[in-house]
């Protein structure tokens, strides 16, 4: 199925865009991380959201999600790891599934976490962002899982189940990590190897391996869509929230400050309207 719009991000901006897409009669699919990973859920108190002062971030997020669910917003939980435009259609890879849409709204929030030395150079040569997608290629081999997302322990268990020899690296040991998987505390990482991964360097020494699974909460939008123009580290958008790529819109924290809920919700709504207009222009031009 080809959706009218794929919305990437399940925070205030993405949920607002999804609700508005529904109101405008667009078939939208919202792709987001498990809601427990949303940074808004960790906000102790939100004092400046109009009409609802004093709620916790979790309460506000629950209210946004309830609203979206009541409006029948279709959602998929997972991490988008790759995107492609072919012809007039966009394809987003989420785990080992691919979803197609005529437009995209990026509501990915602020990308957290830096790129490790060696990561870009060895991507696809031992560096992977998706255990479900590439795990089968590492059966019987030594792999390192760098756990930077809440579901990383689960993915490490998946790799161990395939027969990979897994070592789990993270600043702290996750409570749900299987006792059968060795854990090492590590914060400063470097991925080593000439034309393929041979080891991960940490402050405690090198760990030999053939694969490194970097499991972050999100892949930065500019890495998903090469060619997206940035400004001051954020996605460059115009007043309609159009990015530099036709058919790709952005809203919320990923477009820059103020990094506030009200701004995210407003931009989400506006991005949905812009998508509707864009789709109409596209469809009229084909008549």
């Amino acid at each position: 199925m080809v959706y009218d719009c794929l919305i990437l991000g399940g925070g205030p901006a993405g949920l607002s865009a999804a609700v508005q897409c529904g109101a405008l009669g667009l078939r939208a699919l919202l792709i987001g991380n498990p809601s427990g990973q949303n940074p808004l859920g960790r906000a102790e108190r939100v004092e400046n959201y109009l009409g609802l002062p004093g709620l916790t971030g979790g309460e506000l997020l629950d209210a946004f999600q309830r609203h979206a669910a009541e409006r029948g917003v279709q959602t998929v939980t997972g991490r988008a790891i790759a995107a492609m435009a072919y012809g007039d259609i966009f394809a987003l890879t989420v785990g080992s599934e691919v979803y197609q849409g005529e437009s995209v709204i990026l509501a990915t929030g602020v990308a957290r976490g830096r790129v490790f030395p060696g990561e870009a150079r060895l991507l696809g040569r031992g560096v992977s962002y998706c255990a479900v997608c590439d795990g089968m290629l590492y059966r019987g081999r030594e792999v390192v899982v760098v756990g930077l997302a809440q579901d990383a322990a689960e993915e490490a268990a998946f790799l161990a189940g395939l027969g990979c020899q897994v070592t789990f690296l993270a600043p702290e040991r996750p409570a749900d990590l299987s006792p059968a998987i060795p854990y090492k505390k590590a914060q400063r990482l470097e991925i080593l190897g000439e034309d393929r991964v041979t080891a991960v360097g940490t402050e405690g020494g090198q760990i030999p391996c053939q694969g490194v699974f970097l499991l972050r909460e999100a892949v930065a939008p500019a890495a998903l869509f090469p060619g997206l123009a940035l400004e001051g580290g954020y996605l460059r958008v115009d007043r309609d929230l159009a990015t530099s790529l036709p058919g790709v819109y952005a809203c919320g924290d990923c477009t820059g400050p103020p990094l506030q809920i009200a701004k995210a919700v407003g931009e989400g709504q506006r991005a949905a309207h812009s998508v509707k207009n864009w789709l109409e222009r596209q469809r009229n031009s084909k008549k």
């Binding site: 991507l123 696809g124 040569r125 031992g126 560096v127 992977s128 997608c133 590439d134 089968m136 290629l137 590492y138 034309d195 393929r196 991964v197 053939q210 694969g211």
Partner: peptide, 18 residues
């Protein structure tokens, strides 16, 4: 790569599609 895994190993195919 499932039918011819040796080729994938030989050419260091560690993520697909490559």
């Amino acid at each position: 790569v499932d039918e011819v895994p040796d080729l994938a190993v030989r050419y260091g195919v560690m993520s697909i599609p490559t």
